[in-house]
């Protein structure tokens, strides 16, 4: 018993250490975001914000005038924060819903159905993971342009709506782990594949599916270069693209450090709120149904 308790202590020690290593850079971002960009270099080592100001957050929310921004050494530019936030939510939510749903269908076929050529087709799907994005960006952009979808939500969403090799691969690995007896029982009850998929497989895989959904949502939310290319117009511009204004604007220039950090923290905030709200439900729903 004592040994187990020591094990737990050691375990917690490791966990705490990881947490500290994880959180310290966030503290540093927070401290930087409350500093004045002009003073940061002079107070590079200070643990507290240098020349405390909320200016960076005002710039992120688009509340600060050009003159104010210049005075604080920040980036100038108009930011319609709430519009971009809405756009980000629309894009990330649609991508997540579509990608997770269609990928889980495909993954089901690859994991649980028997058909000729299954392994070959799956292997081809997985090799797509290795296609460097540099190949895909240019032709995809041309396609979206030819479809007349530049500066539309659909143009931003489409390449990731139907699948990513990662999502299919991920879910297939989990579907493989489901006990065959569960399906057989369903089949004896006269359920077809569609019904088995919706009634048995999906509910049983809430854990991996919600994990995947979280990861897809984050990836989509953070996507930068693609929406920059196809969705620069104001009405569909997403948060990451809009906040790109805080990155370095000139060759050998310096970013608006405080603005960049404030923007990063602020852009992450909606996701944190979302997971705080949904997280409990997700965890509770990960039952161990179907294992009996």
């Amino acid at each position: 018993m004592a040994s187990i308790r020591w094990g737990r202590v050691a375990g917690w020690a490791v966990l705490v250490l990881v947490m500290v290593a994880t959180l310290f850079p966030f503290y540093w971002m927070l401290r930087t975001s409350f500093s004045s960009t002009r003073s940061l270099a002079a107070g590079a080592g200070d643990l507290l914000p240098v020349d405390f100001t909320l200016g960076a957050y005002r710039r992120v929310l688009g509340l600060s005038s050009t003159a104010e921004a210049v005075a604080e050494g920040g980036s100038t530019g108009t930011v319609d924060f709430w519009l971009y936030l809405r756009n980000s939510i629309v894009v990330a939510t649609t991508v997540t819903a579509g990608q997770v749903f269609f990928s889980s269908m495909a993954a089901y076929a690859f994991a649980r159905l028997r058909w000729p050529g299954r392994e070959a087709v799956f292997t081809i799907f997985v090799t797509a993971l290795m296609v460097p994005p540099i190949f895909t960006t240019l032709p995809n952009f041309v396609l979206i342009k030819d479809l007349g979808l530049l500066n539309t939500y659909l143009g931003i969403i489409l390449p990731h709506l139907l699948m990513t090799p990662f999502a299919v691969f991920f879910l297939r690995q989990f579907f493989l782990g489901i006990n065959a007896s569960v399906e057989e029982a369903a089949r004896l009850d006269g359920a077809g594949h569609v019904r088995t998929f919706f009634r048995i497989i999906l509910p049983m895989s809430k854990g991996p599916i919600s994990t995947l959904a979280i990861l897809v949502y984050i990836t989509s939310w953070n996507d930068y270069f693609w929406p920059l290319l196809v969705g620069k117009a104001e009405n569909v511009r997403v948060l990451t693209v809009a906040l790109g204004i805080f990155r370095s604007q000139t060759p050998q220039g310096s970013p608006d450090w405080a603005g960049l950090m404030a923007a990063t923290l602020f852009a992450a905030l909606p996701m944190i709120v979302l997971f705080a709200l949904l997280g409990r439900r997700v965890i509770d729903s990960i039952g161990y149904t179907g294992v009996k």
Binding site: F125, T136, P159, P165, V168
Partner: peptide
């Protein structure tokens, strides 16, 4: 089951 994903796969990958 595979069709939607296959379309996305063929076009974008």
């Amino acid at each position: 089951f595979v069709l939607p994903a296959a379309i996305g796969f063929a076009v974008f990958y």
